[in-house]
Design a protein around this nucleic acid. Structure first.
Lengths: 158, 158
DNA sequence: TGTAACCTTGACGTAAACGTTAAGTCGCGG
DNA sequence: CCGCGACTTAACGTTTACGTCAAGGTTACA
């Protein structure tokens, strides 16, 4: 159900697709595409049909971008992650409504599993990138050494 | 010039494309494709025309894989990085041949510049990934807290 | 010496992630 | 109330990074 504006929220709190795209540094097409794939939940619309993005929507967009650029996830992988995020929020709301505990527990655990896998992956990546960093640092300092040697005309010292 | 076997090197030191691909966890097609794009320098060949990959080649392949998977680089970006790596090695060899000092100095500096840019990028990524790690850790512990609550039947404590 | 397993190039196919264009609708300042 | 820019959906095009044959050459081994 693509919701319309809720009474308490002002039109000021929302921005058009053009502005949202510009702020995120992507195209309108990309936003619509992500929506089609289910990465973004259908945003609010004005009566005429134009999309209105909320602060939450923008945060989600940023999150997706980070997963793409930092972790190199495909959109389908991101969808999984986003769905678990979704589940988390639904669960938090549902906690009020006091329903089937076993079911909620299962969802919570599933969500935690996904989050944990992501965490492990991030940790692994950080480790490997620190190795790369060390290598690059090494390379760089040996290059700088050579440069210094050359500058001082001490070319023969290999 | 796709070189042939050099006298000092034994055939044992080289492996076929099939084995190289298997070791790297990629396909033969991918190796040939990378070679076409100029990511890999043309490897040695046996007289019959079949490729022979050296230890250096394998190292290069690993390097490319890390750039792809860790940094999320496109192949064209990787090509740039690899070319600068190439340049570095050429320069190191040339250092013996004692040629125009000014020119070598310039190349060394260019090489250092590229390496430094790469280093900065890696550092930036590490930073951002540490932020993600923190967020995920936070998420996870709050999830686990809720799970514990539910398990002990203390559902009301929001 | 044959033959099965491996390799070669070349060409065409494909999935993902959008780009681009078309044809029409909406919203708002003058 | 009109015109212009921003928006809508739909459809087709494009790029990247390979996958997948096809048709033949090479190598190793019984």
């Amino acid at each position: 159900m693509p919701k319309t504006l809720e009474p308490v929220e002002s039109r000021q709190d929302f921005i058009s697709i053009g502005e949202a795209a510009e702020r995120a540094g992507i195209t309108q097409r990309t936003l619509r595409y992500w929506e089609d794939l289910g990465l973004l939940k259908p945003p609010a619309r004005v009566s005429g049909g134009q999309r209105l993005y909320s602060r939450d929507d923008l945060a989600r967009i940023d999150q997706i971008l980070r997963m793409k650029k930092l972790l190199g996830f495909s959109l389908s992988e991101i969808k999984l992650a986003v769905e678990s995020e979704e589940a988390k929020q639904v669960i938090c709301k549902d906690l009020k409504h006091e329903r089937s505990r076993a079911r909620r527990l299962k969802q919570l655990e599933e969500s935690a599993g996904i989050t944990e896998r992501q965490l492990r992956m991030v940790e692994e990546k950080i480790k490997q990138m620190q190795v790369m960093k060390k290598e690059l640092t090494c390379d760089l300092s040996s290059l700088n050494e050579r440069i210094a040697e050359l500058r001082e005309g001490v070319q023969g010292t290999v």
